[in-house]
Structure formats: C-alpha cells, structure tokens
Nucleic acid binder design. Sequence first.
DNA 1: CAAGGTAGCCTTACGATGTAAGATTGTCAA
DNA 2: TTGACAATCTTACATCGTAAGGCTACCTTG
Lengths: 227, 227
Amino acid sequence: MTPKSVKSTRKNTEPKAKLSRERVLQKALEIADQEGIQALTMRRLAQELEVEAMSLYYHFANKDRLLDGMIDRVFAEIELPPAGEWRSRIRTRAYSTRAALVRHRWALGLMESRTSPGPATLRHHDAVLECFRKNGFSVAAAAHAYSLLDSYVYGFVLQQINLPFNTFEEAGPAAESIMAEVAAGEYPYLVEMASEHIFKPGYDYAEEFGIGLEIVLDGLERLRKAN
Amino acid sequence: MTPKSVKSTRKNTEPKAKLSRERVLQKALEIADQEGIQALTMRRLAQELEVEAMSLYYHFANKDRLLDGMIDRVFAEIELPPAGEWRSRIRTRAYSTRAALVRHRWALGLMESRTSPGPATLRHHDAVLECFRKNGFSVAAAAHAYSLLDSYVYGFVLQQINLPFNTFEEAGPAAESIMAEVAAGEYPYLVEMASEHIFKPGYDYAEEFGIGLEIVLDGLERLRKAN
DNA sequence: CAAGGTAGCCTTACGATGTAAGATTGTCAA
DNA sequence: TTGACAATCTTACATCGTAAGGCTACCTTG
C-alpha cells in the first residue's frame, strides 16, 4: 500500500511528501496555535502543506470535520495518570487539561457547536469515569463529580483566555486603558479589586486555578462519601 | 425609488423607522437566538432592518464591535437580587447567569476572543464584588470566590450547550448513533453511565447544575470564614 | 501484456462574506 | 440661500468554503 519506492523513474523532482489526515491535522494545529483560529483557512493550510486547497477535501469532508479532528487531538494530549490515589490523579488531569486548553487557545471556542466527539475524546472520558467508579463513587456520584470538575476546569480556562492580561507584569499597558473607563468612580469594587489585589507585582491569575481546584476536590470527596 | 419624499416635518404613513445602535442590537440578538450566530451576517441583519448592509457601519465600526455590544446586552440580562442573604443572592445570580447564557447560546462562544467589556458587564461585576465584600469576604477571598463561581457557571453552560441532548426524552434518536460507536465494548464506563444514569426517563442534565452549585457555595462559605 | 479502475491531487468556478471608498440625500443653522 | 453635517446607499473587491469535474500515476485483473 505504501508507495515507498519512488520509482517514478525520470524527473522525479523533489520530495512532495504525501498528504495524510495526520499531516494535515498537525499543520492545522500549528497554524491555529501560532496565529489564531481565524488564520486557519483551507487555502492557507494547503499552501503550508504545498498542495492546493481542494486536495484537503480528499481527507476531510469539509472544514467542520477538520475542526472536529483538531479538537480530538487536543483531548489526546490530556493525560490521566494510570495509577495513584484518585484525588491526585484527578488533580493532575485537571492541570493537564488546563495546560492543553491554554496551549491551544482556539479549542474551547470551537467546542461550542461541535457535538460529535472523536475517539480520543471518548477514550479520555471513559478513563476518568473509570477512575471515579473504581474509587468509591456511585454512578450518580460519578456523574455529579464529572460535571462539577469539568465545569470548573473549562470555565476557568474560558476566563483565563478572555483576560486582557494574566500577570501584573504584562498588565502595565492594558491597565491604563481599562482604568480610564473604570476610574470615573462608577465601579468602586472593581477598582478596589484591581488596585489592592490584581495590579500587584507577582499577581498571576493562573494561580487562582489551584485554589478553586482544591475546593472542588473537597466537594468531590464529599460526593464520594455521601454515596 | 424610495418614495419617501415626505413633504416635511410631518411623519408620513410609517415610512421607515430610523436606525439606531439599540435597534440594530435588538434585531441582531433575535437573529442569533433564533437561527444561530452563523446566520447573523451584516447583509441579513440589514435586510431585516429594511436597510442596506453598509448603513450598519455608521453605528458600528465593524462586526466585532457589534458582537461586543451583543455580549454586553446579555450581561445586562443577568440579575443580582438587591437584598437578602449573600448565599441566596449569589445562588440566584448563578441561575440567572445560566439562564441568560442558555437563552443566548451563541454568547459563550463569542466570549473567547472578546476582551473589551462593555458598561453593563462592568456594572455587573462590580455589583457581585460588592455583595462579597459587604458580607465578610476579604479582597483576596472575593477574588477566589468570584473566580470559582464564574468558572463553574460558565463551564457548566459550555458543557450543557455542547451536549447533543439534555433530557432522556430528546435523547432517543441521538442515543442510537452514539451508542453505535460506543457499544463496541471499548468504552465500558461510558456505557455504564449512559445506560444506568443518563438514558433513564426523567433524566435532565440541567439538574446537575444545582448539585454542583451547592458544593461551590459551600466552598465560598469556607473561603469567607477562612479570611 | 493491455485495459480498466481507483486513489490522490488539481483546475475552474460560484455564491457568500466583511468592508473600503465615495456618492447621495435629508435636515437644519447661519 | 447656502453650506455643513448626519445618516444612508452604491459600487467594488479580496477572501472564504466548497461543488463539479479533470488529470495522472499506480494497481488489479484478464
């Protein structure tokens, strides 16, 4: 099947690596990661792969299927430690999920509207459920736990991505334009929060993640015991 | 061609309502709510307003500014009860937020990439912070609380929207195609969850919301006491 | 070997989209 | 009357996803 032998005889110019689902997905991820999802057009993607746009349609029915595939790749990056205490395994998974979604900032926005999960996604969900079920969670409790956990993780990333800045250091320029609207005295509590908490050296919103996560994990523990 | 050569100051037989930021936003919400955000094009919007597409650009610099305005309208719909115990006020707000985001399913997807909050958004955040600060939350605790609370709410809605179905009743048709992929025995815990919990009469994922929310509120209470 | 099938990529074309540039009109103050 | 400004329209263009079909090299089958 693999035409390894390039016996094209004469004038076989150069490489022209063959197209494949994987190669297309790989390049699509690169473009979206580096330049944003709006930079990912079929023509642009094809160009980077040294092909014409319509060639992509041999491997993907349409752009939506391509996006589905990209989402599945992101889920494949999320790791669930194979062994250990359930709480630390779930914690690791939560951090891993956040890392993947921040690494691929376009992924969350794509999840809305995309309702057909790929194999990596299904496999992942199954593994998490297994972790719950084998550690004292009833079926119902596992459902509650999963819902709470993922809601928190997804929601946190959504907010983190929307933030105009993450750390105090990079806030500098943005801070002024924001404060300009805000400082008129209309939003006293936002001003308080900004000046006394957020606009302080060393502040990093990402660190909030761990605080909320431990609270969520405590909640999961109670779900586990309750049933 | 437009026979609107109205004599002068007198209003004619309802000739043509004037365009305005508010009227444009209103119609944009209607279209997006009823037919999805992809149906909202400048031409379509203009048509519904009985106007040409380019006329919209007098009121909005570009489509992104229009979308910003729409998001702000959604935030304006979220209510925070003006009085009462903090826990019940925050609970009400959480339900109200979820309702608004489900009513306008396109809103969450738009929030990614939109980083300039409108006045209603700022006002809303300010009111919530006030509620925390006046009820024993330190500045830091209020920051943690807000992060956790909104992460949960946004994340839950994100999942709810992505679900192919919400209740058992509407699951019927979709269930089969899903189970077809899944039933091969590769995902035993997903199958268990589906058959023993989700695919049961009366199941409604939306009800999970309250369960997780109370756990989150318990967490907030502990944040409040801790500092 | 020839004949035909098929996998994989390309060419051309079309309708839809956001919006730049500038023309046109209605209204009102001077 | 004039002129200015606010609000809307006309025209045009680059870019997008993708439908329809063509081309070519390889493989199978006789």
